[in-house]
Simulated scan of single mutants.
Amino acid sequence: MITRIAERLFPSGRGRALPGAVAPGDPLAEASELVVRLGGREVLAGVSLTARAGEVLALVGPNGAGKSTLLAALAADLPADEGVVRVCGRPTTAWPARELALRRAMLPQSAALSFPFAVEDVVRMGRAPWAGTALEDDDDRIVREAMASTEVGEFAARPFSALSGGERARVALARVLAQRAPLLLLDEPTAALDLRHQELVLRVCRERAAAGDAVVVVLHDLGLAGAYADRVAVLRGGVVAAEGAPAGVFTGELLTEVYRQPVEVFPHPRTGAPVVAPVRG
Rank of each mutant, 00 (worst) to 15 (best):
L193T: 11
R158N: 05
V176K: 08
V47K: 07
A53W: 10
L9D: 04
W95N: 00
C205M: 03
G223C: 07
Y228R: 02
H268M: 03
P182G: 14
R208C: 10
R231G: 08
E7I: 08
A97Q: 03
A58S: 13
Y259T: 06
A21Y: 02
E82G: 13
E154M: 04
A225I: 11
V276P: 02
A94M: 01
V275Y: 02
V143K: 03
Q198K: 15
G165N: 08
D121T: 04
V143E: 13
P96R: 11
D230T: 07
A105K: 11
A273L: 00
L38R: 15
G226Q: 12
M1D: 14
A128E: 00
D221S: 05
A209K: 07
L183I: 09
L70F: 03
L200N: 14
A21C: 09
V201E: 08
L59G: 05
L49R: 03
S32E: 15
E120P: 00
L235H: 08
E199L: 15
L177R: 01
V60P: 07
R98M: 00
V240K: 08
A105S: 14
A162S: 15
T69M: 04
G54V: 06
S114W: 08
P108K: 13
R16S: 00
E42W: 15
V22F: 12
F250P: 02
V258K: 02
R236K: 14
G272D: 11
D139K: 10
R280W: 11
W130M: 00
G166M: 11
R236N: 14
L195C: 03
C88L: 15
G25E: 02
G223I: 09
R37S: 13
G244T: 06
R141D: 15
A241K: 10
R206D: 05
A131V: 02
A94N: 01
S110R: 14
D140M: 06
L78S: 08
L57H: 04
V87D: 02
P129V: 05
P27Q: 08
L18N: 07
K67M: 12
A225G: 12
G272Q: 07
V84Q: 07
N63A: 14
A45S: 14
L107F: 01
M1G: 15
P62W: 01
V47Y: 11
A111S: 14
G223S: 12
L193N: 09
F160C: 04
T92Q: 05
R196W: 05
